[in-house]
Design a protein around this nucleic acid. Structure first.
Lengths: 204, 204
DNA sequence: GCCATCAGTGTACAGATGTACAGGTCTGGT
DNA sequence: ACCAGACCTGTACATCTGTACACTGATGGC
């Protein structure tokens, strides 16, 4: 956005002091958004090749920044993964709040939830895949666990706003379950089936 | 050359018919169980360090076999991962069938399911963690996806045996959801809460 | 007993990886 | 104008990785 050199020729520039003959960003220029841009690039990398192939170099290439940049902003790979997870969680909660804001107050919640599940397994499938990978990645990184926990707590709280705490939690569990089972199948679950499960969980 | 033979890495000596004075298995001896033993070692490695740190060398060390052995039985790492996933899924389905066989016919299904969830988040937590990692690992390995699918299909079928197809599916989704959300928290969900969700899904 | 065959192993090697760090460039204060 | 320090980048390097393959020795048919 603020970067005038969006087409960074990362592979070029072998010389130590290029003197900026091309459009590459020269060292020393500030770029405060870069950190977040790198984190988002990490999310893209996870979406494309999976969390086990996340490397500094791949992220650097995806973000269009030199390798040194990724190690400058994120001391270790785990730091980078942590930021990616946080970013993904934030983006997701933001999206959910928007969804909730547009929800018809007197509408059918079960129907809306089924719609949401199908959205996450259809148009937003890549995002869902990333989130589950990051969620699972937290298993062996204690520092990340609270991010994952906050993520599904936010989900449960959101749903609880339309019912009660216990039901909200159960709805979030069911929601995650549909996402998880749907993400490894190419065929989407039937809307009717998803909706029925939510309806039963809502107790009517 | 760098290693003067004496430092055999397999110092553990799994006492399966050594026949050699120093105890190390000599080349040429057959060991038909070894393939499965390596696959199980891979599961242990995933449980301990995560799927992204699964390497031939680590598995070889865990199984007490030389490096060449793992590459002999599994041409590539993905082969090894596939076998581990299959093994874990088989073991899990086996365990579930045992659970089902011991189920009281007239008992309370919701209660039994809640118990099962707590078992997978308590005593069998490591196994659950592995299964979810392998499940997610299939996302970027199309060859593994059908194994994951068969796994939760088996789950749904099992539950459907006590109710009907639709309810069985919904129960399996709820079950996976509780597992997923529980696996990243150190605090177990309350049995009462889990049981209530199953009861509502059962519609009574 | 002999030997063809093949299961199993040790080692080498090219490539990828995380990370450190020296050095370059710019900004803000004086 | 000048400089100190913050910001950023290119590169080097030790380490780890997957995988190939020559080689060893047991097996089983004769």
């Amino acid at each position: 956005m603020t970067t005038p050199d969006a087409t960074t020729p990362d592979a070029t520039n072998p010389g130590a002091a290029p003197a900026r003959s091309n459009g590459a960003r020269a060292a020393g220029q500030r770029d405060p958004d870069r950190r977040q841009r790198i984190a988002r690039a990490a999310i893209d990398v996870v979406a494309e090749v999976g969390v086990e192939k996340l490397t500094h170099r791949r992220v650097a290439a995806a973000a269009g920044v030199p390798l040194g940049s990724t190690t400058y902003y994120f001391k270790t790979l785990d730091d980078l993964l942590a930021s990616a997870l946080r970013q993904a969680a934030d983006d997701d909660v933001e999206h959910l709040r928007t969804w909730a804001a547009g929800l018809d107050a007197g509408g059918d919640l079960a129907e809306a939830l089924a719609e949401l599940v199908l959205h996450y397994l259809g148009p937003a499938r890549a995002q869902t895949a990333v989130e589950h990978q990051l969620y699972i990645a937290a298993l062996h990184r204690p520092a990340l666990q609270h991010v994952s926990q906050e993520w599904d707590t936010a989900l449960a709280d959101l749903f609880a706003g339309y019912t009660d705490a216990g039901t909200g939690r159960a709805l979030s569990v069911l929601f995650c379950g549909w996402q998880l089972q749907g993400i490894v199948r190419e065929q989407l679950p039937e809307r009717r089936e998803v909706e029925a499960s939510f309806r039963r969980q809502l107790g009517r």
